[in-house]
Write a protein that binds this DNA or RNA. Sequence first.
RNA 1: GGAGGGGUGGGAGAGUGGCUAAUUCCAGCAGACUGUAAAUCUGCCCGCUUCGGCGUACGGUGGUUCGAAUCCACCCCCCUCCA
Length: 306
Amino acid sequence: MRKTTILIAGPTASGKSAAALMLAAKIGGEIVNADALQVYKDLNILSARPAATGEAQAAHHLYGHVDGAVRYSAGEWSRAAALAVADIHRRGKAAILTGGTGLYFRAIETGLSEAPPIPDDVRAAAAARFEAIGADAFRKEVLSFDPAMARLAPADRQRHIRAWEVFKACGAPLSELQQRPGAPIIENPDARVVIEPPRTALYAAIDARFDRMIAEGALAEAQRLFDRRLSPDLPVMKAVGAAELMANLRGAFSLEEAIDLARQNSRRFAKRQLTWFRNQARLWPRAGSAAQAADALFVASGALQR
RNA sequence: GGAGGGGUGGGAGAGUGGCUAAUUCCAGCAGACUGUAAAUCUGCCCGCUUCGGCGUACGGUGGUUCGAAUCCACCCCCCUCCA
């Protein structure tokens, strides 16, 4: 039995989900989420998760399976994805991974370096240390045990903290761990594609989609998440759209301002995604639309399933 | 017709004699990216550029000054109020 695996990447609102559904219908596939925020159960509308109708047409995996209070990671996702794909193959179906998180695709295609999980107390210590001594001193401290981290931009708080945490948690410099590449999770995908709509069309789609989200109850969803009073530095709390609407609930600005900001941040986010795929996924074939992507993938995958 | 306010780079909006091609914000563009990645960070953004510079610029035209977006005169346009 063939173990078909297909990857669909692209910026937000480019039609990835639609392409995945079309393809799944044609070749008898199941869909696996490769998007960092669609994993959270608190974000349904706001992360543009496939609608129930879509989920009825084909099995979906790794959507909304994580509680918002959890700090998920690329590593956890890639392990879960490996299991999901193996499962689908066991059932004789094609696995279609789709999402907009470039790092996640890298994690399965080339693998992440082996790194131990960081205990919560070390995480907290890192953040506390950073606040206590300031960015400059913190950077010096990191460089003292991992000089290679000099390549980090001085203002890059997040990566400095990561380097600090890893060293404290396992005693080895992060740069050293990174030199030992991990193993790919998906060896040779049968087909892959980046959906890259024209910029103006993509921006228009983003604006239109946000209106739809509001109409579908995005505000109530934001309210529910807001009411959980989770730590603001959790990934769910930073979701584009959710963050702005919650800022409105907090009284930081009006609903109109929140909506404008959400749209703006979505556009910026899409631009960053395009930059990633353009430069980090150079060898992937391109498609200008969901339909085009589905067709190309159908041909490329050999259409042996069913 | 009279009184006042104002015209600054794609937009908003600082600047009131040199430190200013002109703070800042927005919009836009380009880039980095190994476990928070919808995150985090960097650069460009008047034209040309071998990236050191060069050339034009703050409604228009003249003028004052060693030097003007900044001061003066006239002209054009916009807004508010009084007729």
